[in-house]
Design a protein around this nucleic acid. Structure first.
Lengths: 246, 246
DNA sequence: CCGCTCCCTAAGCGGCTGCTCAGCAACCGT
DNA sequence: ACGGTTGCTGAGCAGCCGCTTAGGGAGCGG
């Protein structure tokens, strides 16, 4: 029941992104990296700290290699404290996965509605999606790559959210084909490939690297427009912004 | 000592492709699926059975969630038998990872040398690489996604092989740019994206699906040529071979 | 027949796992 | 002052983990 409290009040963490909660902008040397908001409004403070600790631990070592003792000690608590806020270790993963996937769907939906032409919609969606996966790569890695550690019922729920993401992307591609802007022989296969390409960013992206999340989003938006067979854009957005204008 | 024997004689075995079975969507209870060659010449028969069992188990549940008892019983042996052929559970993963990565490098090298023009070389490399990841997706999933369970020294060795793969691909892209066939503003970033796209096939591909490995290879080869800014190919290889003729 | 090697098993060891439970300090409205 | 609720801890349980060890049986050169 206390576990419910921690679980229930997660989902409305969207509006204000705490501009005050970021202390360690330059990534700490310990390896974890950014403070990672997104969990700004998890119920009691302790529940949020546990969630954050779990995200870091799962991202570093994977779900199965992470012990509940490790999560608790990262949160500065005793091993037993975890079970006041979450019923099982798996529920922790489930919360992370659910919130992350809902966020993904929202990013794609909003970006896909933010423009008129299919090319602009596709570029905006990829740009935002990639940027999120790069910026929040610690969270995203857990969200995208620890799925199959979920319990059967939770897994089914998450898979449904993933299908939503795929449908949103495929919808944009189909609109573009219908409008004659794209040339895609297999919209389903291409949508899958695009999603796969963007998601995989979470696996290899590192904060200290040469590319910023924004730059990577630009690069990928250009690559994906090409994959869709879109003619070169007006603002030089054909493949990373450094292409020729024509 | 016996562990060495099992390790040494692995690396050949390529010809015959079988692949007739299929897999459940999640972890099928019957086991994994295809026979998966590649391990055709592992030293004693028992060592090969253990390797194969480990591949299936790691692919289904992940390295950390797999027990040595599970591997041994899949191979029809007692838990202790594993340690006659391999020193630790991690060495099993290391052998799988090493052989798989060597295979990857070889596939890219050979395909990248099989043609003359950069476009044909790129297409051939992607086609072969994707096909392998789809056909042997059980093996490939372990090879590509269980890396960080490796011991430090083994991890370093594998990472070097991965860098080789990236360099081969980047080399093709750079040749294409130099020849004026490709338009790529950021060869390193694009090579990384292409590799990422191909590798991720192993994560979601299922044998029972609508696309065969060959079809997927064709689709991806077309997508990647577009990403590279190559003009539409002569044999309808613009994006999947199913495009309109003219 | 011997003795030796090669594979393999039954049993089990120490340690760590996820998770539980009794209890306690701090706060609450009354 | 006080019973009740909330949030947490120290201790620990049952069970599973990777891995080891002692020994057995099949094969084989002599």
């Amino acid at each position: 029941m206390a576990a419910e409290t921690g679980a229930e009040s997660v989902e409305s963490a969207d509006a204000e992104e705490g501009a005050d909660a970021e202390e360690g902008v330059r990534d700490a040397e310990d390896g974890a990296g950014e403070p990672d908001d997104s969990w700004g409004e998890v119920a009691p403070d302790a529940a949020r700290r546990l969630l954050l600790a779990a995200v870091e631990a799962f991202a570093e070592r994977g779900f199965h290699a992470t012990t509940t003792r490790d999560i608790a000690s990262r949160a500065g608590m005793s091993p037993a404290a975890l079970y006041i806020h979450y019923r099982t270790k798996e529920e922790l993963l489930y919360q992370i996965s659910r919130v992350g996937h809902e966020r993904s769907v929202r990013i794609l939906t909003e970006a896909g509605n933010s423009a008129v032409t299919p090319a602009d919609r596709l570029a905006a969606a990829v740009r935002a999606f990639v940027r999120w996966h790069a910026e929040r790569h610690t969270t995203a890695r857990v969200v995208q790559y620890e799925l199959n550690a979920l319990a059967e019922e939770h897994y089914a729920e998450i898979v449904a959210l993933r299908r939503r993401s795929e449908e949103i992307l495929r919808g944009i591609l189909e609109d573009g084909v219908a409008a004659g802007d794209f040339t895609v022989p297999d919209t389903r296969g291409t949508a899958l490939a695009v999603l796969s390409l963007c998601v995989d960013v979470a696996r290899w992206f590192r904060s200290g690297g040469t590319r910023t999340p924004e730059e990577l989003g630009e690069l990928y938006a250009g690559l994906v427009l090409r994959m869709a067979g879109a003619p070169a854009g007006p603002a030089g957005e054909s493949a990373g912004g450094a292409d020729r204008g024509a």
